[in-house]
Amino acid sequence: KCTICLSMLEDGEDVRRLPCMHLFHQLCVDQWLAMSKKCPICR
């Protein structure tokens, strides 16, 4: 589950894993990281 948009991560979707190993939709986390340089879970 992407904790930014709260939707399930589905096969075939573009996802991004951060160095902390948390996984998000690529678009969601890219937009998040443009505003904050910290993982939305770890922050």
Score class of each variant (00 low, 15 high):
residue 14 D to R: 11
residue 7 S to G: 13
residue 22 H to L: 00
residue 20 C to M: 01
residue 13 E to R: 12
residue 36 S to F: 10
residue 17 R to P: 06
residue 3 T to D: 07
residue 35 M to E: 14
residue 26 Q to M: 09
residue 31 Q to R: 13
residue 16 R to S: 08
residue 21 M to A: 14
residue 16 R to T: 12
residue 2 C to L: 00
residue 3 T to Q: 15
residue 5 C to T: 00
residue 38 K to N: 10
residue 36 S to G: 15
residue 15 V to H: 05
residue 15 V to S: 08
residue 1 K to N: 09
residue 8 M to Y: 12
residue 13 E to Q: 10
residue 28 C to D: 02
residue 3 T to L: 11
residue 23 L to H: 12
residue 5 C to W: 00
residue 3 T to G: 10
residue 39 C to E: 05
residue 37 K to E: 14
residue 3 T to E: 06
residue 4 I to K: 04
residue 10 E to H: 09
residue 27 L to H: 15
residue 16 R to D: 07
residue 10 E to D: 13
residue 27 L to D: 14
residue 13 E to L: 03
residue 2 C to I: 00
residue 13 E to I: 04
residue 4 I to N: 05
residue 3 T to H: 15
residue 36 S to Y: 11
residue 27 L to F: 08
residue 17 R to Q: 08
residue 34 A to E: 09
residue 19 P to H: 05
residue 3 T to M: 10
residue 11 D to M: 05
residue 40 P to Q: 06
residue 9 L to A: 03
residue 34 A to P: 05
residue 26 Q to E: 10
residue 29 V to C: 10
residue 43 R to G: 15
residue 1 K to M: 02
residue 21 M to E: 14
residue 14 D to A: 12
residue 4 I to T: 01
residue 15 V to D: 01
residue 16 R to E: 08
residue 13 E to M: 06
residue 6 L to C: 14
residue 39 C to K: 05
residue 20 C to K: 01
residue 16 R to M: 10
residue 38 K to S: 13
residue 19 P to W: 01
residue 19 P to E: 12
residue 9 L to T: 04
residue 13 E to C: 10
residue 37 K to V: 07
residue 17 R to G: 07
residue 22 H to S: 02
residue 3 T to N: 12
residue 37 K to D: 10
residue 21 M to L: 09
residue 5 C to M: 02
residue 12 G to P: 04
residue 22 H to A: 01
residue 30 D to W: 04
residue 22 H to D: 02
residue 2 C to R: 01
residue 37 K to S: 10
residue 33 L to G: 07
residue 39 C to G: 03
residue 23 L to C: 07
residue 2 C to N: 02
residue 10 E to L: 09
residue 4 I to P: 02
residue 36 S to C: 08
residue 6 L to H: 14
residue 8 M to P: 11
residue 14 D to I: 08
residue 2 C to D: 05
residue 24 F to N: 03
residue 24 F to M: 13
residue 20 C to T: 01
residue 6 L to Q: 14
residue 1 K to V: 04
residue 39 C to R: 03
residue 25 H to C: 04
residue 20 C to D: 02
residue 4 I to D: 05
residue 19 P to V: 02
residue 43 R to V: 15
residue 7 S to P: 00
residue 22 H to Y: 00
residue 22 H to K: 01
residue 9 L to V: 12
residue 11 D to A: 06
residue 17 R to K: 12
residue 11 D to S: 07
residue 27 L to N: 14
residue 31 Q to F: 03
residue 31 Q to C: 03
residue 32 W to Q: 13
residue 34 A to V: 08
residue 22 H to M: 03
residue 6 L to R: 13
residue 23 L to A: 12
residue 1 K to W: 04
residue 34 A to N: 08
residue 41 I to V: 11
residue 5 C to L: 00
residue 38 K to C: 13
residue 27 L to S: 14
residue 4 I to Q: 03
residue 6 L to T: 10
residue 5 C to A: 00
residue 25 H to P: 04
residue 33 L to I: 07
residue 39 C to P: 08
residue 31 Q to P: 12
residue 21 M to S: 14
residue 2 C to V: 00
residue 17 R to L: 08
residue 3 T to I: 11
residue 30 D to F: 05
residue 27 L to T: 14
residue 30 D to H: 03
residue 24 F to R: 04
residue 21 M to I: 02
residue 20 C to S: 01
residue 16 R to L: 08
residue 21 M to R: 13
residue 42 C to G: 03
residue 11 D to N: 13
residue 34 A to H: 06
residue 32 W to M: 13
residue 29 V to Y: 07
residue 17 R to H: 07
residue 10 E to G: 11
residue 30 D to N: 15
residue 35 M to R: 12
residue 8 M to K: 13
residue 19 P to A: 07
residue 7 S to H: 14
residue 16 R to Y: 07
residue 18 L to S: 03
residue 36 S to I: 06
residue 26 Q to S: 12
residue 15 V to Y: 08
residue 15 V to P: 00
residue 5 C to E: 00
residue 28 C to H: 04
residue 32 W to R: 09
residue 23 L to W: 08
residue 39 C to L: 02
residue 12 G to M: 08
residue 28 C to E: 00
residue 13 E to S: 10
residue 10 E to Y: 05
residue 25 H to A: 00
residue 20 C to A: 01
residue 19 P to N: 06
residue 33 L to T: 10
residue 41 I to S: 14
residue 39 C to H: 06
residue 34 A to L: 10
residue 7 S to N: 15
residue 1 K to G: 04
residue 18 L to W: 06
residue 30 D to R: 06
residue 42 C to D: 05
residue 41 I to M: 10
residue 41 I to Q: 15
residue 31 Q to W: 03
residue 2 C to E: 00
residue 40 P to L: 03
residue 12 G to W: 06
residue 10 E to S: 12
residue 35 M to L: 11
residue 10 E to K: 13
residue 40 P to F: 03
residue 36 S to V: 08
residue 9 L to R: 01
residue 14 D to C: 07
residue 4 I to V: 04
residue 33 L to W: 08
residue 11 D to L: 03
residue 13 E to G: 12
residue 30 D to S: 09
residue 21 M to P: 04
residue 1 K to C: 05
residue 5 C to P: 01
residue 11 D to V: 07
residue 4 I to M: 11
residue 36 S to K: 12
residue 26 Q to F: 04
residue 16 R to P: 03
residue 18 L to N: 00
residue 35 M to Y: 04
residue 15 V to K: 09
residue 11 D to Q: 06
residue 19 P to S: 07
residue 26 Q to P: 12
residue 17 R to Y: 07
residue 23 L to S: 12
residue 2 C to H: 01
residue 40 P to T: 03
residue 23 L to D: 14
residue 41 I to W: 06
residue 42 C to M: 00
residue 15 V to I: 10
residue 42 C to R: 04
residue 37 K to Q: 15
residue 22 H to Q: 04
residue 18 L to V: 02
residue 35 M to K: 15
residue 35 M to V: 10
residue 1 K to L: 06
residue 7 S to C: 09
residue 31 Q to A: 10
residue 21 M to T: 11
residue 36 S to M: 07
residue 37 K to W: 06
residue 33 L to M: 13
residue 35 M to W: 08
residue 8 M to L: 13
residue 9 L to N: 09
residue 20 C to I: 04
residue 42 C to Q: 04
residue 27 L to G: 14
residue 19 P to C: 05
residue 11 D to E: 12
residue 8 M to E: 12
residue 13 E to F: 01
residue 9 L to F: 15
residue 4 I to W: 07
residue 9 L to I: 11
residue 38 K to V: 13
residue 9 L to E: 01
residue 17 R to C: 08
residue 32 W to G: 09
residue 33 L to P: 06
residue 6 L to M: 09
residue 14 D to G: 14
residue 17 R to D: 04
residue 25 H to Q: 00
residue 29 V to Q: 03
